[in-house]
């Protein structure tokens, strides 16, 4: 792909085609509009030039013309808006059963945690044809996850999760850029997205021994003492987390919110902000105590508690009780 002088970026995701189509439409439309205006200016400039001894004809203006050239562009603009919004809506709504990859950005590298347990730095392996949802956070400043070949970009913020998704369509190695200025080596915060055939991907997955992410989370859940209060058998001092993810929760200030990833995250780090109704704000603060990777593992574990015993399609790992060894503390510094 490293041609010396490309004029069009690679197209390697299901999103890319739609974006390119609108871009080409805009290019054509705006090109025509620009050329029309330039030609008019050139023709007027030549035809009515003063050196020919012309006298100007005074024209006051025309309401009909003004309304036309306000109204017609407005209608066209609304069309472009709807088209652009439709693409964006798709880009912002990950399909239900996407495979999830947790991402931690930091100055100046990308760290990925696969659900299967593999961890990568500045390299992301994904298979063709699977919806992949990136659940991303930053441990320092704002970064932005940008894969030009997929036409997707999403800022990665400290203190919360943001989400991007894609479905790769073409095997190859593509640029991953940080697109939000993040300090000294911003331009060095780059990597590769490696899109593989499913079979090769399976082979890659089986490459190294690793505990599934939710499994790591479970270990943490036990070792940090979460399970003393968050019990599954009887009502503990904290809410029962079984089937808690993505359900509505009533808070003690009367609001009802959805227990999404960001809520889980916030409730681990600063638990007193949104306390579930009927519970006391007694949970210790974990901000600064656990790493972003550990937090991801915990969130992945709590989410995995939603699965029915027989397992759900699209996720490959279910947390069974069999421990596979000590959870690896993922301090990639």
């Amino acid at each position: 792909m490293f041609q010396t002088f490309p004029l069009w970026p690679e197209r390697a995701s299901t999103t890319a085609g739609g974006v390119d189509a609108l871009f080409i439409f805009l290019l054509t439309l705006c090109g025509l509009m620009a050329i029309m205006i330039f030609i008019m200016i050139l023709v007027f400039a030549a035809k009515y030039r003063r050196s020919r001894g012309r006298e100007a004809e005074q024209i006051e203006g025309s309401n009909a013309l003004e309304l036309t050239w306000s109204g017609v562009p407005l209608v066209i603009f609304m069309g472009i808006f709807v088209w652009g919004a439709a693409i964006y809506f798709k880009e912002r709504t990950p399909p239900q059963d996407s495979a999830e990859i947790y991402t931690v950005a930091k100055q100046w590298m990308w760290k990925f945690q696969h659900m299967e347990g593999q961890r990568e730095i500045n390299e992301l392996h994904v298979p063709i044809g699977r919806d992949v949802k990136m659940i991303m956070t930053s441990q320092d400043v704002i970064h932005s996850f940008y894969v030009p070949a997929f036409r997707i970009k999403q800022d990665v913020l400290p203190g919360r999760y943001t989400v991007a998704w894609f479905r790769a369509t073409k095997a190859g190695r593509y640029h991953l850029f940080c697109a939000e200025y993040c300090g000294t080596s911003h331009s060095g915060m780059i990597g590769d997205v490696v899109v593989m055939q499913p079979a090769q991907y399976e082979q890659w997955l089986s490459g190294g021994p690793a505990a599934p992410l939710a499994q790591t989370g479970k270990q943490l859940f036990l070792s940090l003492g979460c399970s003393t209060c968050h019990r599954f058998d009887v009502q503990g001092r904290g809410p029962n987390l079984m089937n808690a993810y993505n359900r509505p929760v009533l808070l003690d200030d009367g609001r009802t919110i959805t227990a999404d990833e960001n809520y889980l995250r916030e409730s681990i780090l600063t638990p007193a902000v949104k306390v579930v109704s009927g519970f006391k704000p007694i949970m210790p603060i974990f901000q600064g105590i656990i790493s972003e990777e550990q937090l991801n593992a915990l969130v992945a574990y709590i989410k995995s508690l939603n699965q029915s015993p027989e397992g759900t399609a699209g996720t490959r790992n279910t947390p069974t009780g069999s421990p596979t060894g000590q959870p690896q503390m993922m301090q990639v510094q």
Binding site: T270, P271, A272, V273, P281, I282, I285, Q287
Partner: peptide, 13 residues
Amino acid sequence: GTNFHFEGPDPQH
């Protein structure tokens, strides 16, 4: 800042 200290469930905010 560094001077700050607050006894309560949510000192950060």
